[in-house]
């Protein structure tokens, strides 16, 4: 397992005061909160910060962690020394903010995976129907266009017979609803936690994210595609082939369009109700003057076209 430098993760000095640690945590948590942040690795960072804070905010855990010494580097192969935390007594009642099962194996090795079943918002009623559960899944953009069936693997933690948490894995074949887009929730009735006795199981809610695609970008239900074109295709307004998630289409370029311009292919985005649009962003690619013929053509343009793209700059 890899050593984790909690001070480095929080961006504080090893002798930082508890107040400094708290301030650093609040700032980072706001920056990387998955509901707020647009950073691509926000979720990973947020978990890391949560884990670091779990240790550093608690003077007992922090002192035990400090015992490991200063010679460790982040990412270094690590095994806790035998009996490293002897003489430390931990008093805290659990993890108020974080789901302990999400913490790294480094954290587990040091502080144990003390399973915490007290959820802050747990309904205290006598409803024996199974709980609703939530998970996130990543799908391909084509799945949202076609409504394909995907096999998803879910993991959850259950308390084993020895009272220790066990990770259980299950696979489900899910028909992805056509037109679903980023951040939406889909509901799978009866796939949550099992009910007690003859009561129904809860529902499973899945939050949708898209796997990165080599050339499509997704914004809401709109899809963006950067399309390389030649200068003459743009200048002359030629018809070019454009790949869309449902197949090739022919696109007539408006003559004289400049590079960087976005063209909208109406309702060719994700087929929601109403459907999104597909935006084609035109990018001019210049052929290089690497042959006598290419060089000659460029020189001919230079001689015959009185073209100054910098006239607006006064040069």
């Amino acid at each position: 397992m890899e050593f984790k430098d909690y001070y480095k993760i929080m961006g504080v000095a090893r002798d930082a005061t508890q107040d400094e640690i708290k301030r650093a945590y609040r700032k980072l948590a706001r920056k990387y909160h998955p509901d707020v942040s647009k950073e691509p690795d926000a979720e990973v960072r947020f978990k890391e910060i949560g884990e670091a804070y779990e240790v550093l905010k608690d003077p007992e855990k922090r002192a035990a962690y400090d015992q490991l010494g200063t010679s460790w580097q982040s990412g270094q192969e690590f095994q806790p020394p035998p009996g490293w935390n002897q003489g430390f007594e931990f008093h805290d009642g659990g993890f108020a903010h974080a789901d302990a099962s999400q913490f790294s194996s480094f954290f587990e090795a040091l502080f144990g995976n003390r399973f915490n079943t007290n959820r802050r918002y747990r309904d205290e009623g006598f409803d024996m129907r199974g709980n609703d559960t939530h998970a996130k899944i990543s799908i391909d953009i084509q799945d949202a266009y076609l409504g394909s069936v995907r096999t998803i693997t879910l993991q959850h933690t259950e308390l084993g017979p020895d009272g220790r948490p066990q990770v259980k894995t299950r696979k489900l074949n899910v028909r992805i609803p056509k037109g679903v887009h980023q951040g939406q929730l889909i509901r799978l009735a009866g796939q949550g936690s099992p009910g007690i006795g003859k009561h129904n199981a809860g529902d499973l809610y899945l939050e949708i994210a898209f796997n990165p695609h080599p050339f499509y970008k997704i914004e809401g239900k709109d899809v963006l595609l950067e399309l390389p074109v030649t200068p003459w295709e743009l200048a002359l307004g030629r018809v070019v082939k454009v790949p869309t998630p449902t197949g090739m289409v022919d696109l007539k370029l408006p003559p004289g369009t400049q590079s960087g311009r976005k063209l909208r292919l109406k309702e060719r985005g994700i087929p929601s109700k109403p459907p999104g649009d597909l935006y084609v962003i035109l990018q001019i690619v210049l052929p290089s003057a690497d042959s006598e013929q290419a060089k000659g053509l460029y020189e001919e343009m230079e001689r015959k076209l009185a073209f100054n793209p910098r006239s607006k700059l006064g040069v």
Binding site: Y121, N173, R175, I176, P177, Q184, I186, L188, Y205, K273
Partner: peptide, 26 residues
Amino acid sequence: NQNIIDAVIVEEGVELTLDELSRACA
């Protein structure tokens, strides 16, 4: 589970009762 499970988009056309909404958020 070999069966194919149908899913519905919660934001589109799903209505939740007070009870369902509170249960979905625990």
